[in-house]
Amino acid sequence: MSTPEDWTPEEQQVHDALHRAAERVQPGPDGLARIRRRTAVVPMWRRPVVLGLAGATALAAAVIVGGAIVLSNDDDDTPVATTTSTSPATSPNGTPTDTSPPTSPPAAETTPPAQTLTVPVYYVADAGDGLRLVREFHTVETSLPPVAAAINEMLTAPPADPDYTTLWEPGVEVLSADVADGAIVVDLSGPPAVGDDPDLATQQLVYTATAAAATAQLDGSLPVRIAVGGENPSEPVGRADPLEVRQLVQLNDPAEGATLPSPVTVSGEAAVNEANVLWELRRDGEVVDSGNTTAEECCTFSPFAFELDLEPGSYEIVVSESDESGGEGRPPMSDSRTFTVE
């Protein structure tokens, strides 16, 4: 590591020049006030949820599909084959679990046996256009039914991908998530603290709950009502338009940190112009290969996949939409995974 003592005259000049240029920059006086305004917490359950409508309006003004705001049952949240190494109704030690007492949640009634579930869990990531929803599949050992298990995972487990984060602060648990009166009623243990984007935080929960419902052969098009301690369920909230709230390029495989043999199948979903998906393969931050592939359909979420023949080592794969605007619009969205070829 260089220190000022062993810098070359050239390095010293760069140092001096940068400091001189930097010192001319004088930030405005109201930065802290601006930050404060944005971090002030507005309780989510007291706010009308407007995102769905706003999304619909923006969609009409934009380009593409009309209307399709609710999730159909044959949704894209079906877990991908490679992540489901499940063996339902078998406990970790391989014996039926109905004889052993459960370790997990407080059981007022009979606790159902633990089982292995692969659940879709939505998080958020900033791919260059502000935060948007992203999804991982988590395999969990649980005695909760699938929708509650997915929400529990969202509330308690960090995302595997370091680029992802959650809008939900820890400390809140899911008490139940049941279908009642044409909605999925999610009952939380306490009022959630969700930071400065309560609408998107709500959608993180709504997407997770509805995706889990669809995966569990329930009706994934139902809206969600959020209650706290069983009281005052909110108005039903449906999924906002995915083109407005989801990251438009989403990798499913490889999973973050996976170790796998070559050839490596890279797959995901994208809603992109001309169905064109670009990819870059990196090692140590340097691009070693790149190319493009096509999603099955243009402009709406549809699957893409391609294969890479790789020598052993660590890689990062980055997939992105192409930048149609020539740099005029928002930056292209991307998703990335690091993985190891054995």
Binding site: A17, R20, E23
Partner: peptide, 24 residues
């Protein structure tokens, strides 16, 4: 960056800094 530098700043090497920042 550092628009409207003062006369002193220019005198003590503002131009050189600009060249580096420009190249950067």
């Amino acid at each position: 960056p550092g628009h409207a530098p003062s006369a002193e700043q220019v005198a003590v090497g503002g131009a050189a800094a600009d060249a580096v920042v420009e190249a950067l």
